[in-house]
Every structure is written in C-alpha cells, then in structure tokens.
Amino acid sequence: MSVSRRLETFVAFSAEVTAFTPTEVWGTGLTQRYLDTVDGVVGTAMTDALLNAFDRITTQSAGERTAKLRQTVFGCEQLGPVARAVVKLWYIGTWYALPAAWQERFGPAAQDGTFVPTPDAYVEGLLWSAIGAHPPGAKAQGFGSWQFPPGIPKF
C-alpha cells in the first residue's frame, strides 16, 4: 500500500468502526498522528495486516462489512484487541494498553501502555459530539447553555 492509500484506508476503517463519517474523522486533524501511534505500538506489519483485512471488504454492502469485520478483525485474537484499542482511541483520545494475554502471545509491543498521544487527542475525542456534550476543559458550549434541554446530533 502506498503511504497515502494507507492513510485513506485507516480513515475508512476508523469511520466504519466508530460510526462517524470520514469527513468527521479527517476533521479531528489527528489521522496521521493516530496511524503513527498504532504503527508505533504494534509495528507497521501488524497495522498493515489490519488495514489489508479491511481493504478486502470495502466494496461490500454495509451489512456484509459488519459481518466480515466481526469475523476477520474483531474475532481475530491478534487483530481484535488492536482494532478495539483504535476504537477507544478515536472515542476518548487515550490509547489503552493492550491486554496482558495479547502481550504474551503477540508481543512485545515496545511502546504499549496507557497514554494520550497528544493533548489535542483528548480535545478531539469523538465521543463528546456523539452525546451532545464537550470534553471537560475544552470546547465549552457557552454561558448558560447547560440550562437548556440537550440535543444529540442525528447521524
């Protein structure tokens, strides 16, 4: 995969597993940073395995993609925990250390641990807009906004 194709596939995969649009994913400004994070933790070979597995199913229907993802990615002992860590990374902005069992079998992943890749990661967590809120300490909604009924954006 070319460098740009790799990033595009990562974005498409991220959009699929978070249920946000690729535009929203790009909009965080963190795509390359997160791809580097994954590469840094599990190595490019394993990241490629994940991206290739997704690339093979991109042309299928949404329902088929979900089923295939469950089988080949989330159901896979090696790729599943990595893919789940990517989901959490997008939602909250924190990379959560891979499970000890994964480390034993497929590790060592040298740079693994629980960490925030960059201060922006916290601020750009996708979760907040999903629940009509904002990350504490950033993107405040304005004086008095909290007294009104909440609004959750439709997707």
Binding site: A133, H134, P136, G137, A138, A140, Q141, G142, F143, G144, S145, W146
Partner: peptide, 8 residues
Amino acid sequence: ERCEGNTA
C-alpha cells in the same frame, strides 16, 4: 468574565 460551562 463569564463561566462558559467547561465542566472542569
């Protein structure tokens, strides 16, 4: 000069 609701 006003609380913005930063929840922090």
